[in-house]
Amino acid sequence: MATPLVVSEVAKSFTMHLRDGIRLPVVENVSFSVAAGECAVLGGPSGIGKSSILKMLYGNYSVDTGQVLITHNDVTVDIASADPRSVLTIRRDVVGYVSQFLRTVPRVAAVDVVAEPLLAKGVAHEEARDCAGDLLARLNLPERLWSLPPATFSGGEQQRVNIARGFITDHPLLLLDEPTASLDAANRAVVVDLIRAKKEAGTALLGIFHDQDVREAVADRIIDVSLFSAPKEAA
């Protein structure tokens, strides 16, 4: 089976045109891969570019140079150069992403926020909502909240909606950006179980976990992002 994710010599910088065009290098020469059924963790101090790497893999940030090769059903797509439509297809079918913060949409109920990725894949409405309910129950989100839009939820509640939304699909590659940051111990344990189940199902996972307990519980391997640090230019 092909490796689901191969990152090859990726470099990223930001050019701040509003600040006299200064160039802020983020990472360079990022090279690693993640195998199916493996959970790799991006390690290193804050601000080193871990989140940026995840965002590049998801197509949310552009890539200056290098390749992000995602393989699914024997088709390999380079996210770094793919057109928007291909990226959207990859997101729908291949790559899931749990961000640090939930971007809420007005008036959409929590259960529908969670069910949406399944609906996008063509799952029937009722079935998708049932799956969403199961996951929310597992994450201990009170049922009375399911029909409410998550905009007014607490940070922890929003995060659980976000996790459920990320884990509901059977995407072969899952990117996790501090999914447990605002959760209590009980819910962190649920997330650890969810991650283990994904691994057993053959999902490739790549995550950022500041919580050491969680990291040790799920990580098969730590990728040290500080090795990819770009030399800072004199501003």
Binding site: F14, H17, G21, N60, Y61, S62, P84, V87, L88
Partner: peptide
């Protein structure tokens, strides 16, 4: 021109950065 969240979260052009900011 690009994916909406890419343009908004990682704007490349000076004018786009101005708009987003």
């Amino acid at each position: 021109h690009g994916l909406t969240d890419r343009v908004l979260d990682d704007p490349r052009e000076p004018y786009t950065q101005l708009l987003v900011s």
